[in-house]
Nucleic acid binder design. Sequence first.
DNA 1: CTAGTTGCAAATCATTTGCACTTGC
DNA 2: GCAAGTGCAAATGATTTGCAACTAG
Lengths: 141, 141
Amino acid sequence: MTKADIEQLIRDVGLKVTAPRVLVYEQLAKAEVHHMSAETIYTTLSGKGQDIGLATVYRVLNQFEEAGLISKHHFDGDHAIYELAHKEHHDHMVCTVCGAVQEFCDPLIEKQILAVASASQFKCEGHQFTLYGRCSRCRSS
Amino acid sequence: MTKADIEQLIRDVGLKVTAPRVLVYEQLAKAEVHHMSAETIYTTLSGKGQDIGLATVYRVLNQFEEAGLISKHHFDGDHAIYELAHKEHHDHMVCTVCGAVQEFCDPLIEKQILAVASASQFKCEGHQFTLYGRCSRCRSS
DNA sequence: CTAGTTGCAAATCATTTGCACTTGC
DNA sequence: GCAAGTGCAAATGATTTGCAACTAG
């Protein structure tokens, strides 16, 4: 995804194209770290010499979330984690040792969710499903 | 469950039996509201004229959680919700309108979790699974 | 008696907001 | 030019902690 693509995306959701917005989006788009906290995004950008404020990072993230560009998760009780919104739904496996986040999607589970909800007359509008444990790299430690 | 049972439970996990501890446990054991926040527990007890501090409620809840007597959830990003620890594992459906919490347990989903984890060489140690939507009472509103 | 508990107030921590200044269009 | 966006500092809200007074065993 080029910088021009990002700018267009921001324009498309009705926001002005500004340096902080492009920077935050680029950061989240970077392959290695799809899942980041506001603080991490801020310190990473700030560390690269970018003149950006933490409050702005939070504001931009909230605007992006409202616009549907990104999604927000609360894997632990503390800070929120953000990721670019994918088209396809997916859930997460979070490593309690190294903090790595892997995505997965299981059709059988998705199907069962509907069954469970309808059995309780519950109108399900969304769900949050996270597995906690040790990723392949941290299994032995 | 009698007051004596509660006192014994507290003693069993190695804590002194004190008024705040018994009060908090009793409150969580009350049938109607199995899921409560620290703040709610505090105001409820406090409103009944009990001399208890909010900080103590938090401390007691944390001690109970460490002792395995209760479990803690983060249904939204904000305040934590506590409930007595049941023997059987279960997940939750949270009503986004009235805040009601229903429990459910689906063996098929539990089974799939293991399958998904092992497919990714992930050593699953726990999970958090919450459905958000409208409960039967709030479906129409 | 004395280590564990408590209540209160002050301290944290993540996140939000007020405000004067700056910038996109 | 002006509304929208920004940085900073101060405000917030949930939770934690320091500390002197209190109580269970």
